[in-house]
Each structure stands twice: as C-alpha cells, then as structure tokens.
C-alpha cells in the first residue's frame, strides 16, 4: 500500500508517495530526480549509494524510504551550498580522487560521515573508515590524499568553488 511520506532531504521537505518496498535510493533517484546517489550493487557491497542520515553514513540501497521519515537526510546534491563546494568535494576534485566518478558521490558522502564522527582521522583511520566504498579506478591513493588534506584543514576556508582548471 502506498503512503505519503514526508522526507527531509538536503534541508528541504519533500512529500512523496512511496510503496513500502521502495528503497531510499530508488526514491531519491527515480521519484525526486536526484540521481547523484549511485547504485553499483544494490546489496550493500560497494558503498556507491552512501548518503547521510542524521549525520552518519548509510547505504541507501538497503534503507527503506518509509523508515526514513523524520530523519535528516543529506545526499550528494546537498553538500554544495550557494555554488560553493564542500571542502571534501573540493579536495576530491583538486587531488584527482575522481576518475570515472561513479563511486565518487558515495566516496564523498562516506568521507563526510567519517569526518563528522572523527574530524581528524589518522591515515590508518581513513583506510579503515573508507573500506566500505569500492573504487575500481583510483587505487584509493588520491582519495586518501583528499580526505587527509581536509582533515589537516587544508580546505578550511575554501572559497573557490570554480570548476575551473586554472
């Protein structure tokens, strides 16, 4: 039976008709058109669908949308504020922690969750903390670099959000 669900996503209220068997990933991607959240396996194994629920990293492919009412949900679309990238987005972009980009939203949301829990993770903590996100392109080195740079405060008052290459 479908029901109307109030979802708080990226600080905005959304009223959506959902069936109980719809995952949060399906709802944000198909119903709300926020396709930044990616699907690589749909069974918890790859982390591409990682989003934040109440500040912590969750896998949206195995989270029910109906169970997400009343929670604060943040997807990749919610990080950029007023055209300004979040430090972790900026770092991934500049350090080339992104190649094909399919894992990237999940990687960023996972790193965000990690930094929420532990703002200054050591290299070893980053390695463990990011182990739920598979990336086939980068070999992870540049993702580590980016998270480390953010943890070290390198992107603290990042003003530039320009995609610009120069």
């Amino acid at each position: 039976m479908k029901q109307v669900v109030q979802l708080n996503i990226n600080d905005s209220p959304y009223e959506v008709m959902v069936a109980p068997n719809e995952t949060l990933a399906d709802v944000v991607r198909r119903k709300l058109g926020m396709t930044g959240t990616k699907l690589g396996c749909e069974q918890g194994d790859c982390g591409a669908c990682t989003i934040l629920i109440d500040g912590r990293s969750h896998l949206s492919c195995i989270t029910l949308a109906v169970a997400s009412e009343g929670k604060e949900i943040v997807t990749i679309e919610g990080l950029e504020k007023d055209g300004k990238l979040d430090p972790i987005q900026q770092a991934i972009l500049e350090k080339q922690g992104v190649q094909c980009g399919i894992c990237t939203p999940g990687v960023i949301m996972s790193a965000k969750g990690l930094l929420n829990e532990n703002p200054e993770p050591s290299h070893a903590e980053i390695v463990v903390g990011m182990s739920g996100n598979l990336c086939r392109c980068t070999g992870y080195e540049k993702i580590f670099d980016a998270v480390e740079a953010v943890a070290a405060g390198e992107y603290d008052d990042e003003k530039t959000s320009q995609a610009g290459a120069e």
Binding site: T75, Q89, L93, T104, P105
Partner: peptide
C-alpha cells in the same frame, strides 16, 4: 589540471 567534468562528478 583537475578533470574538466570533475565538478559535475563531485556534485552528483
């Protein structure tokens, strides 16, 4: 140089 499509990729 960062990826030209990188901005789109890090923002979804």
């Amino acid at each position: 140089v960062p990826r030209v499509e990188g901005y789109d990729k890090v923002t979804g």
